[in-house]
Design a protein around this nucleic acid. Sequence first.
DNA 1: ACATATTGATTGCATATGCAAGTTATCTTG
DNA 2: CAAGATAACTTGCATATGCAATCAATATGT
Lengths: 154, 154
Amino acid sequence: MSEDLRPFGDPGSNRFRVDAYPFYLLNRAASRYNVVIESQLRPIGIDIPTWRVLMILGEREPLPIAHVAKSAVINISTMMRIVERMVKAGLIVTQPSETDGRVTELAMTDLGQEKLVAARAATSPVYQQIITGFSAEDFAQLLDLLGRLHDNLD
Amino acid sequence: MSEDLRPFGDPGSNRFRVDAYPFYLLNRAASRYNVVIESQLRPIGIDIPTWRVLMILGEREPLPIAHVAKSAVINISTMMRIVERMVKAGLIVTQPSETDGRVTELAMTDLGQEKLVAARAATSPVYQQIITGFSAEDFAQLLDLLGRLHDNLD
DNA sequence: ACATATTGATTGCATATGCAAGTTATCTTG
DNA sequence: CAAGATAACTTGCATATGCAATCAATATGT
């Protein structure tokens, strides 16, 4: 039974401490993760946004641009430019939806699939490193807590 | 006793699912958090980088630019431009360190302190909302797990 | 059926970001 | 102490980002 740390994470409290602020820890972890992942992807020749798109298309394709943007948590406008780059690089192709005239669908090319395979192989060790010391319970807790944070934000 | 979810978060596993990928959940939560916080700060007239700097200086000041950059997990080059903006806006002042000729220290102006107070008041409700349903144990777990993720990344 | 609202995609534009190169000051090593 | 290494800061430059405005297609309401 230890102290309740919640007040220390409250920006409105005079006991506030940055290191008890979930948002700070979130950004810090995500930021460092980005740096590490980026260095793993560099040899493959893809950047982080590209990688995120490939991961999402790897689960299901084709998908509308807006859907991929939402999944990747990337602004739709930014996603347009990412799609441009990826098409130019020959990683994906765009095609109009057959059922909805507004929609442009994205699908991976063979090259895109190859890059995805390579990126998965390259990032898997990082994943293993990151969850070092995490029991199955710790891991489940982490997913649960992050999900609840997200849900609490509407 | 439930299933071990760790393999589902491994990009190298063929059972990989984005929604079991801690990095994805991290980015998603941080991203949504940013959007919400940004909307709270807009009426006060400060952006997220500015807010992060004020929060850090609120704990201790003056501080060297590099120190603030590290704390805020912001690239030093980017931090330079943020400092420029904040000085121009009258939120902080720069002063050469008395003990180290290389160092430029940052300190808040009265206006900066006022903005910090206002920002804290504005973001506190968001914090309360985010940790809704979090017990003291949940919260402590969250801080611990995020810290361990971070530490595992070197 | 028609008018209105919504959704998806797209682009111009201003700004933010960060790499790389350079300057100055301090530290470290022989 | 001198020389090289390191650290803090600074800036030019290319690129990424996202707001806001626009157009087209579909959905909704009367």
